[in-house]
Nucleic acid binder design. Structure first.
Lengths: 133, 133
DNA sequence: AATAATGATACATTATTAGTATCATTTGTC
DNA sequence: GACAAATGATACTAATAATGTATCATTATT
C-alpha cells in the first residue's frame, strides 16, 4: 500500500530544490541533472504542477519554473491531489451499492474517522516544513 | 488512493457473515448467494484466509468454513496483511537510495508517525466491532 | 531566423489488481 | 466402493492503474 506515488515523490524532490533556489528560475534540464528523474516524465509532472497552481512557468529561452506560492502554503495534500485521486481511504467499499448491511456503514464511519486524521496530518506537512531541516 | 482493496472488502463481508452464523459451517456457495461476489474469486480469497489462520476449513461433503479465532481477536490489519503488502505508507520514497538529502528523511519521519497512528487505529477495528451494530 | 525553453497530447510499457479455469484431494452418504 | 459435494493448489487471463516516452506546437530571447 502506498500513500505517496512516484509523481508525488518526484514533485516533492523538484519542489524542494526549486524552493531552495527561489532567487532563480529553474529549468527541467537542471532538475534532471540534480534529481535523477527521467526527463520527459518530469516535464509532464511539472506541467501538472503548473496547471495545479503550485508552480509558475515561463516559456521561451531562459524560461523555467518557480514556486507560485510560499513554501509555507504548499502542503502535501495539495500535491497529492494533483496526481492521485482525491484523498479517500474508503472508496472501494462504498461505491458499490450492493452493500446493504449495517456492517459496511459501521466500517465506513470508522475509516472516515481515520481518513480525516490522516488528511489533517498531511495538511500539516508543508514544503517549508520539509526544507528547514 | 485506496486503503482497502477488493479482496479485503470481500473478506470483511464474508467474515461478518460467517461470524453471524457461527453455529454452522458455511460454504462458498452460500456466501456467493448472500454476498454477490464472483465465486472463483471468493474461493481463492477464503483459501487465503485459511492459510492466514483466520478461517478453519473442512473439506469434503458438508465441509465449509468457520472462524479460527474469536471475532474480537480478528482485526482489520490481520486481514489486510494477507492480501495487501505489509502496511507501509512511505515505501516508494525510501527504497530508492538516490535520495540522499535530508528532506526525505524529514518527510519519512513525518510519514512514519502518521503510519503508526493509522496502524493502531486499524488494529482497533475488530470483526467483533463491526458486527455489533 | 535560430535557439531554448515550456504546452499539449497521444502513445507505450510495466506492475498491480481482479478474476477465471481446472485438476487434485478430502469427506460423507448411499 | 462409487458418487457427490465440498475445499486445496495452482496456473492462467483480463482489466486497470502507474510509470514513462515521443512529438509537434507555442512562446520568448538573442
Amino acid at each position: 500500500m502506498k500513500l505517496i506515488t512516484r509523481d508525488t515523490d518526484y514533485s516533492i524532490r523538484a519542489l524542494t530544490y526549486i524552493a531552495k533556489n527561489s532567487s532563480r528560475i529553474i529549468t527541467i534540464t537542471e532538475l534532471v541533472k540534480e534529481l535523477d528523474v527521467p526527463k520527459p516524465f518530469l516535464r509532464k509532472i511539472l506541467q501538472m504542477l503548473s496547471l495545479g497552481g503550485i508552480l509558475n512557468s515561463r516559456k521561451g529561452k531562459n524560461g523555467g519554473f518557480e514556486l507560485a506560492k510560499k513554501p509555507g502554503s504548499i502542503c502535501l495534500t495539495d500535491i497529492m491531489e494533483i496526481f492521485q485521486s482525491k484523498f479517500k481511504l474508503s472508496e472501494c467499499l462504498f461505491k458499490k451499492d450492493i452493500c446493504p448491511n449495517i456492517n459496511d456503514c459501521v466500517l465506513k464511519t470508522k475509516i472516515d474517522k481515520i481518513e480525516s486524521i490522516v488528511e489533517s496530518k498531511l495538511k500539516d506537512i508543508t514544503l517549508a516544513s520539509l526544507i528547514k531541516s
